[in-house]
Each structure stands twice: as C-alpha cells, then as structure tokens.
Design a protein around this nucleic acid. Sequence first.
RNA 1: GGGGGCGUGGUGAAGUCUGGAGUUCACGCCGGCCUGUCAAGCCGGAGGUCGCGGGUUCAAAUCCCGUCGCUCCCGCCA
Length: 601
Amino acid sequence: MASELMKSTGAGDLRASDAGSTVLLAGWIARRRDHGGVIFLDLRDASGIVQVVVNPEDDPAPEDTLHGLRLEYCVQVDGSVRPRPEGTVNDDLPTGAVEVVASTLTVLSPSAPLPFQIDERIDVDEAKRLQYRYLDMRRTRMAENLKARSRTIRAMREVMDREGFLEVETPTLIASTPEGARDMLVPSRLRKGSFYALPQSPQLFKQLLMVGGVERYYQVARCYRDEDFRADRQVEFTQLDFEGSFWGQEDVLGTLEKIAHHVVKEIRGIEIALPIPRLTYAEAMDRYGTDKPDLRFAMELVTLDDVFIDTGFKAFAGVLADGGTVRGINGGPLGLARSGLDALVTRAQDLGAKGLVWMVVEDDGSLRSPVAKFLSDSELAAIVSAMDASPGDTLLIVADRVTTVRSVLGALRLDIGRPEGNADLVFAFIVDFPVFDVGDDGSLAPAHHPFTAPASLDALVETPTTAVSKAYDLVLNGAELGSGSVRIHDPSTQAKVFEVMGISDEEAQSRFGWFLEALRYGTPPHAGFAIGIDRMVSILQDEPNIREVMPFPKTQTGADPLTGSPGRVEETQLVELGIDIRQEVRDEWISMAIQEAVDEG
RNA sequence: GGGGGCGUGGUGAAGUCUGGAGUUCACGCCGGCCUGUCAAGCCGGAGGUCGCGGGUUCAAAUCCCGUCGCUCCCGCCA
C-alpha cells in the first residue's frame, strides 16, 4: 500500500509564485491570533513559517476544535495559497506575500502546556532548555545552529572528497593508552576486570591506515576526554580527523586552507583571504602572550627591558635583576576613570601578577601614572616611543617572570581588545611548537603525543628545552580549532624520542608495542590534523559556548538533564561485568537517595 | 581540588545591598468578547514553601552558616 501523503510542501518555501496552488501542509502552531470570526495561525515546520487563515464558516474543522487550537499543536492543513490582501503583506516573513486558506484542518497531535515559550526573545534557563531539548530545538536559534553544523560537516566532506580522501571509520572501543587526558572506560563482560577505552582521538588507528596504504584518510570522529568541562569543552566532542601519506606540514596546512575557505564560504557566504597567516609558537608567545592569539586586533606585547635597564624604580629593577622582564601593551584610547584603571590592576592581580602599572598619555605627551614620579624623563620618553603611544592612549605594564607577564598581558589584551575594522573571522596557523613545555621550575613535560616528529633529532637530544617539533595548530579568533603534526614514521627515531621523553623501552612496548610493530613494515612519511567541529561551528554562529551547536550536550558536571545520564545500574549488571562497588560508594548512593527523597518531599 | 556569578507563580525579570504582609512588570495558562491579525486586541480569573536545610531576629526572598543545581574561570585538557 502506498504511504499516505501527509504534506506536499514546506511552509517556509511558499512564495508569491505559488499563489493559486493547492497545498497540504503539516507542522506546529507557532502563534495563533483568534479573532472569533477568523483565526490566523503561524504554521511552522522545518522550512520556516507561513500564515494560515482559518475561516470557521468554511468548516475546515468543528468550531470547538478551531477555537481550541493551542501553541505547538501539531496540525495538518489542506488549503490554497493566495496573495495576501492589500495592506496585509508581512515584510518580516520570507513567506509574507502569501497566506494559505485552510479548507481542512486536522490536529495530528495536541500539545500539553509548554514548560517554556518557544520564543526567541526570552533567554530561558539553560538547564530547562537541556531538559526539554526537543522543544528548544523548535526555536530558531537551535534549529539554525543544527543546520549550520550539518552544512559545515557537509562542506568539510566536499573538500575531502574532492581531494581524494577515503572516509574510514575507526573503532570507538579501544585499548586504553592514557596520553595526558583521562580515558573514558567501558567494562568488558566477556573479559571481566578488563576495560575498553573510548578514543581521545583516532590517532594511532589513522597512522595504522597510513601503514595500510590508505594514503588519504578522513573521518568525522566522535572523541572523548574525561576532563573538566568548559564553555568550549565537553567530554564528548566531534572532530574532522584527517591524515595523508607522503605528506609534510605544507600539505596539511594547504588542505586546512581549502577546508577553512570552503566552510566559511558555505556558512558565512564570504571568502577568507589565503594564505592563512603563520606565526611560530615563539612569535605568538612573544607578541600576544599566548599560543592561540586573537588576531582580529593588534595590541601586541612590547618588551621594555632595555628602557628600564638602569631604572631607579625599585619594583622594575628588582624584577630585572631576578631575570624577569618588563613588558606592556598599548590599550589605545580606553578613556577609563580611576576606578576603571584600578579594576584593571585588580584583574591583573587576579591573573597572577604582583601588580600592574598603568599610564595615560596626556595631550602634551606626558605620562600620567602613579609611578611616573619614580621614572626619569628619558625613561618616560622611551616608553612613549617604544609603545608607539599617542595622546589619550592607556598603557599597561607588567613586570614579573616572563611566563607570568605573558599570561597576564595576554589575558588583559583579550579583556580590552576589540576587533579592528571589519575583522570578523581571522584564522592563523601556529607552527614550530616546542617539544617540551618548560615549567617555571625548569621541569620538562611533553607538549604533544610522543608520535610527533621533532624538527631535528639532534636538536632534541642536545637542547631539549628549546627543541621544536613539526607540530602546528589552527587558530580562529583566539580559539584553538585543532592540532596536527608530522608523525614519526621510522622506528629508530621513535625509540629515540621515547628515550628523550623518559619512556622506557619496556613501557613503550607495553603501551604501544602493537603500534611500534606496525611502524617496522615500510611506513610512509605521513602527517595529519584534527579540527574541532563543535568549536568551529560555535564561532561561525557567534555562539558563546559549544553546547549551543550540539544537539544534546551535557552540563558542566557531566549530566544530561533530559535522560538523566549518567545513572546507576542494577546490581545484576555489575555482577555480570565483574565490577564490585566499594562500600563507601554504596553508602554515598544511599545518602544521595535519601537527599533526593527529602528534596522531593 | 579552588575562586566568582546565578537560583523569586509555567517563562523572563525587578525586589535582596539598607529585614517589616508574596509586592510589581511582561509573556504564557484558564474563561468570555471579537472577521484582517501577524509579539493581535479588550474584559475577567487562576497560579509561588522566594532551590533545600539550619541559624540570628518580635519579624527573613532579604542577614549568617551549610547544602544542592546551573554557569564562567584556575587547576586539568600530552
């Protein structure tokens, strides 16, 4: 039997040229204006909104049904499209030139009173939105974000297909190889006491694909990292992961430029300038105080060590004598009152600085500042010159260890900086990342996974603290969109890198033995990248956090208010998995159950 | 693990600093009127243990302590 036709066209697709045609619509009542003798319904479906005119005397449905229509009822309308009468055209609606006169109206499914209004103008509490996400996504904001997400992924696939990449799915139940972030673990029933891990990335599998001769791989990959949440971090997230054989850094960055260009064109309808500018890690840290600089504005950090080399100002002299540095940013014409300047000082202290020196350039070129009296005329003049300061500019100066100065000024820069001109989306590549992050105490911590190729093996061995690797990031508007690297493809280099990183042969064999074995069979040179899709879409959509572009995200404590996950499970399930919950955890469950019972009365 | 913000009828907000009757505004909901509205309009109505617990006080949405939830940030995220 043929399926029953439930709708013939999208409500939002109707235009003046459709006038005269008969249509079958189905959707939800977004708004109703019941005048008694005539009822106007704004019918919304996935395509948009159109006005339906219901005349009770046409008998499209029983009178009490028509006047009983409520918001978000799911209805079907059989009717004819006609131009709106003179003077009633609604220019705010794409369909505003026409309306549909209902000949038959059927309630497919009534709606209970709503927990919140499907209304763009109200910022409903997000916990409530997540609990009723299926209603939230009827709102334009979520509906548009889901569409943008889909179009972004489609645009990415278009580039990958065009470039000859093979889409390959890698497993999501894998061996745990803890590499920094905590793994999400899944117990095995067949092997009690053993656990799978959910992948933090398909890293080692995609490298196996290169060994396997795939040459060009990509995947829209769900990844998991069991760390704390942020506005741009969820435990579960999605990446465009890709890798190429006989590839080096230039091939990867070139592909990223194609992806960025195509995605922005599809989502924003604009063409970004290529090539994407590049900064080395060292340059980025030096000029912007961060490895993910927001390049929509300049406001670069200026080093003032030379200016204060013989200063009589004890605070600066002391810092310089201890091997610290004095640097500043020209905040431009901030026009702050004393209270605003004091707030910046407090902010700097919250960020870890011992203090913040502010200076305002007066009309005559002199500097107004609490510390001006401690500085010589030549020092003041040198500051103005070094910071390219003009009358009205506010200068912010921090003296401390270099790591502190960078992080504080980098953060202040983001606080006060505003996009210049029509800078909207500004991408950047950060290249030449160090192999190790050097702590203030001189300790070394690997900055990347141990499969990242060093720029020079000799340099890595001889001067590990300054050695760089063939690792690179893609940054957009101050957010890290993703990371990649050229990988190590030869076992002897891999062994050396493990050694430098302090990973013993035994440890390497036990954790990655299966992978190291694979490297022995003619592994091609290869390189790749992973783009955080959630972050990219959230920025393209001007959203403040990635939850807004995820259909069913979790809250900051890892819970889903809709389904109640994570939840406790039956004892029988635990027994089957060979999992024994400690008594102190059980006690906690009991006290939480009591608390919940109390909360519910 | 730590720091900040928020929690008030179904929704959003004001009230909290400076204690004095659950007060106010908008939307929604229920009933009535209404044939050109489009955030329809007009009339009437219902609806709240001010997240929860404890304390101070003659008196607590308001002050104090604790706790839960949401959120932003630090740590963490090779």
